[in-house]
Design a protein around this nucleic acid. Sequence first.
DNA 1: GTTTCGGTTCTTTTT
DNA 2: GAACCGAAAC
Length: 647
Amino acid sequence: MARIDFEGRLNAEQLAAAVAPAGPILVLAAAGTGKTRTLVYRVAHLVQDGVLPEHILLLTFTNKAAKEMLERASELVGPGVSGIWGGTFHHMANRILRRHAGRIGFKSDYTIMDRDDSRTLMAKCVQELKLQGKEFPKPDVLLTLYGTAINTEMPLESVVSDRFAGVKVDPNDVTNVILAYQKEKLRIGAMDFDDLLVNCLKLLRENEQILCRYQERFEHVLVDEYQDTNKIQSELVDRIAKKNRSVFVVGDDFQSIYSWRGADFKNIMSFPQRYNDAKIFKLETNYRSVPEILNVANACIAGNPEQYQKTLRATREAYKKPTVVRLRDGDEQARYVVEQIGELQREGYGLSDIVVLYRAHYHSMELQMELMRANTHYVITSGMRFFEQAHIKDLCCLLRIMTNSSDELAFARLFALLPGIGARTAEKLWRKMAGNCNLTDPSVLDRLGKMLPAQAMASWKDIRPVFEAYIAEDLREDPGELIYKFIHAFYKRYMINTFENFERRSDDAQELVIHMAKYNSTDEFLSDVALLTNLDSETEDAGKNSGGAVRLSTVHQAKGLEWPVVFVIWATDGMFPSARSIAESEGAEAEERRLFYVAVTRARNELFLCVPEIRRNRDGSVSYHAPSRFIEEIPPDFVCESRPGFI
DNA sequence: GTTTCGGTTCTTTTT
DNA sequence: GAACCGAAAC
C-alpha cells in the first residue's frame, strides 16, 4: 500500500482534522468544504497508522453516504476497509441486537416493522381498546407522539399533554393505546425503527459486559452528519466511545434538518462540554460554489439564532448572480424550467448536471408532466420507495411469516390476499391459531386449511405446495426461490386481477427475485429490506444509460450532494417554508431556513429560485402565495430578477 | 357480519 | 397513488 500524500490532497483545515491525534474531535464542516473528504482521509489515516479496520465504527444517516465513504476509503487504502463497521445507526443497532436480542426479551428473529406496519398495529390497538371515533387521534399522530417521546426521552405524559392541550381527548387514553402498542410489538416479536435504537441503547445500558465488548472492539468511532443525531443516537455514541475516547464527529449545525424526527442540534453544540478536552476544527473554505451563490447562502442563514458562527469562504472565481424568477403559476413555472433546461443544454450542460429541488414531492407534479411532454429524461429520487409498494410488501410478508411465526402483521397481510378473507377473517384465523403460525409444519398447514372459508380454498390449494417445498427443498437459505415459487403458484394471477399496471409490478417482482439471489439468509435479506428502503443503484444506472437525466428531488434527499445547476421551485410562503411545519412548533421556521440554506448550497454554478404567484387548487379555485420569506431576506443586490411571463 | 367496490380527497421531510 | 368512507354484494 502506497503512502498517501495527505499534505498534497487536503487543504490545511482538512489536514489538521484528518491527522489529529486520537481523542474527542469535533469537525464543523460548512457546506461544500470537503467534509466527506476529510472523513475518508481520517479513516485512511487510521488504517495507515495500523488500526485494524474491524476496530473502526463509522456511522452515517443514509445507506448512500456509508456506501460512498467506504468506496472512497477503499480506493485510498485498499479493500481491507471492508472490515469496517460502516452503516447507518439503524444498521449498527440491528447488527448488535440480532446477537443479543434475548437479553431484552426478544428473539433474534424479530421482524422490523416499517411505517405502514406500525400504522396497522397502532390502528389495531386503538380498536381493541374501543377508542376509535371521530375525536380520537389517528394512528399516524399517535406514532409521531410516541416517536417524539422516545427520541427526546421525554415522559409520554408530558408529550401528550403538550400536544393535546385544549383538545378534548383524555391523555390517559392516548397513553394506554401507546402502552398497548408497545406490548403488542413484544408479543408479535417486532420492532419499529425507533425500537432498534432504543433497544440497542437499553441493551448497552443494562449489560455492562456486552457494552465492554463493543467498547473494546471499537477503538475509533466516527460519525457523519452529527448535527442530525437525536438523544438516543448521541448516547449510543458516547457509551460506545467511553473507554477509548476516540470520537471523531463531523457536522454542520446550519444543515440540521431532521428535528422532526427527534434530531437535536444541541448535541453538536454541547459536544465541547461533554468532552472537555475536545479539539474543534472548522472547515470554511468552500470548493463547490461560485462566490455569488455563497453570498446568498451566507445571507439567508445569518438570521438564525444559536449557531456556531461559520462563514463560507469562496475559492472559485466570480461568475454570475443567482436568479429570482417571478412566475404566474405552477404551469408557467414548469414551462420555464423545461425551457431553461433546453437553454442550458445548448450552453453545454448535460441533463445530469441539473437538479430541481422542492420542499415536498407533490410540488413536482406539473413539472413532471411538462418534462414528459417535452420528452426530457428525468429521474426522481424515490417518491414511493421500492420496498414500500404493495406488491413488494406482499411478497416480503411471505418471508416474514416463514421466519417469525409470531408475526401477526405478516400473517394477516398474506392471508388477506386470498379471496373471501379480509382483515376480520384474518384476525379470527390468527386467534384460532393461538397467535402462532408455523407454516413450515405440515400439521399446522392441515389445521389452517380446514379453517379457511370455502371461497379461499382454490387459492389455498395453489399456495400450500409452496410452503411444503420450503422444508422439502430446504429453501431457508434461498429466499429468492421461495418467492419465485409463490409468484408462479399464485401471486402472478393475483397481480393480473388486482393491479391495472400489472406488467410494471410483475417486473418489480422479478427484480426482487434477482436482487434476493445475492443473499443466502432470509433474515439478512429482510433486515436489508427494512433498512435499505431503496434499490438505489438500479435507478442511478437507468439515468446514465439513457444519456443522462435531470434529477428531481426533495431538499432533504439532496443533502450532501451537488450539481452545477440548481432550480428551486415553489419558493413561496406556505410551500417553502411549509405552512404545516411552521404551524407545528416554535423552532420550525429556523429549521425551514436551514433547509433553504441546504437547497442553495447544492449549487455549483447556477441557481434559479422560482417564485410562482398563484396556485391552482383541484376544484379550480386559485390561492395567492406571497414569495417565500427566505427570498425576501436575501439582499436585492445579491440576485438578478427575472419575470419571463410579463415580457 | 364481512368483504369488496367505487368514489372522493389529500399528498413533508426518513431510517 | 393510497387512504378513507359508504354502499352494494356475498
